[in-house]
């Protein structure tokens, strides 16, 4: 319970933290197709090295990336193993009815590599950007859609509120878990049916409390005159700096290189 979870913001005043959230979001948007499109090892190595460089620049210990992604690694490894076994092709090794094919190994190896790079890049984004910055950037990126009558500001507010509730939900859940454990609920043993029935003392108050918090929040917003569709001003103004242009340029260059290599 005392672990850093994925999606957590970690303050650490690094150059990556100081980047404009919009440029971080665009960089990710450029990196994803680059990772997915490369078909030669050299290209993927290049993209991976670039991602690792950003990880080092983020001022957050690599161990923490490992810690936060650990739950996902198990899932990834299982899917890797299954794919190795069930992709047909030239058998390299046969153990009874299990065949390991060259194609299977190659294909799932590639997939694992790509997903790892993407997860790492996503972690950099969430570790170094506050939820508020993320929604502000998203709102800015989606603002052209406003002409098409998409309620961008309201969407951003909704995302913002949802993100704001994540830590509240975790705190509340933590408190309830500890409190019911002190009264003797054992959440970790017994049959599935028993375990599910033991969730009642946990889920019922969790939902009740969260709904009442949401109710209070809505009231507080109304008291402060929040109205849907009203023009809003901002406390923090986003500004592109030289470092942002550099990051955007590098990521564009990488994507361009990948596309050119593919076209050749």
């Amino acid at each position: 319970m005392n672990n850093i979870s994925m999606g957590q913001y970690l303050p650490a005043g690094s150059p990556v933290h100081r980047l404009d959230p919009r440029s971080k979001l665009i960089c990710i948007a450029l990196l994803v197709p680059a990772v997915l499109m490369t078909s030669n090892p050299l290209g993927l190595t290049l993209v991976s090295l670039w991602t690792l460089l950003v990880v080092l620049l983020s001022g957050i210990k690599p161990g923490l990336y490992w810690q936060s992604l650990k739950p996902l690694w198990v899932l990834l490894l299982i899917s890797f193993v299954l794919q190795v076994f069930f992709t047909p092709g030239n058998a390299l090794l046969t153990l009874g009815f299990i065949k390991i094919s060259r194609e299977g190994l190659l294909y799932s190896g590639w997939l694992l590599w790509r997903i790892s790079v993407l997860l790492l890049a996503a972690s950099v984004l969430t570790f170094t950007t506050t939820p508020l910055q993320l929604t502000m950037a998203l709102e800015w990126l989606l603002s052209p859609l406003r002409r098409m009558r998409v309620p961008v500001q309201e969407l951003a507010m909704m995302i913002n509120l949802a993100l704001r509730f994540v830590p509240t939900l975790f705190d509340e859940a933590r408190m309830l878990l500890l409190a019911q454990r002190s009264r003797g609920t054992d959440f970790n043993s017994g049959s599935i049916k028993e375990r599910v029935s033991r969730l009642t003392p946990f889920m019922v108050p969790l939902l009740t409390n969260i709904f009442s918090r949401a109710d209070e929040l809505a009231l507080a917003m109304e008291i402060r005159c929040y109205r849907v569709g009203a023009a809003r001003s901002r406390l923090h103004v986003m500004r592109f700096r030289p470092a942002d242009y550099a990051a955007l340029f590098l990521n564009t260059a990488i994507l361009a290189a990948v596309i050119t290599a593919k076209a050749l």
Partner: peptide, 17 residues
Amino acid sequence: LWRQVGLVFQFPERQIF
């Protein structure tokens, strides 16, 4: 330990289900 050490949390009414 929970059998012998009772802990009443802050705002315990929030745990009632």
